[in-house]
């Protein structure tokens, strides 16, 4: 079970501004999805190791060599807003009034 307050908290963690309708919808739907997950408690997994990747590839290394990248300008110009060589974002801190 999950309540509306928790949904709000999760939405903030996920950086999603939800409408009141979405909050309500997700409270109901997430609850039934989490209920559905409950069936996993039928299994005893105490001594079972977790699998992060089905086919484990370990210690992949390569020489750390500098490779010039040709598309610097294209990457900068992909940004919604840029200034010179920087990505531009809105003000981070609110100005005290």
């Amino acid at each position: 079970m999950i309540d509306r307050e928790q949904v709000r908290k999760v939405a903030l963690l996920a950086r999603l501004e939800l409408t009141p309708q979405e909050e309500e919808q997700f409270t109901t739907q997430l609850s039934s999805i989490l209920d559905y997950f409950e069936q996993l408690s039928e299994l005893d997994v105490t001594d079972v190791p977790p699998t992060a990747r089905a086919i484990e590839v370990k210690n992949v290394t390569r020489p750390d060599e500098l490779q010039p990248y040709q598309e610097r300008a294209a990457i900068l110009s992909s940004a919604p807003e840029q200034e010179g060589e920087y990505f531009k974002v809105p003000q981070i801190l609110n100005v005290e009034e």
Binding site: R15, E17, P90, Q91
Partner: peptide
């Protein structure tokens, strides 16, 4: 601000 930019962009 930056936080509301994140939240609303993703919304």
């Amino acid at each position: 601000n930056l936080l509301s930019m994140y939240n609303r962009t993703r919304a």
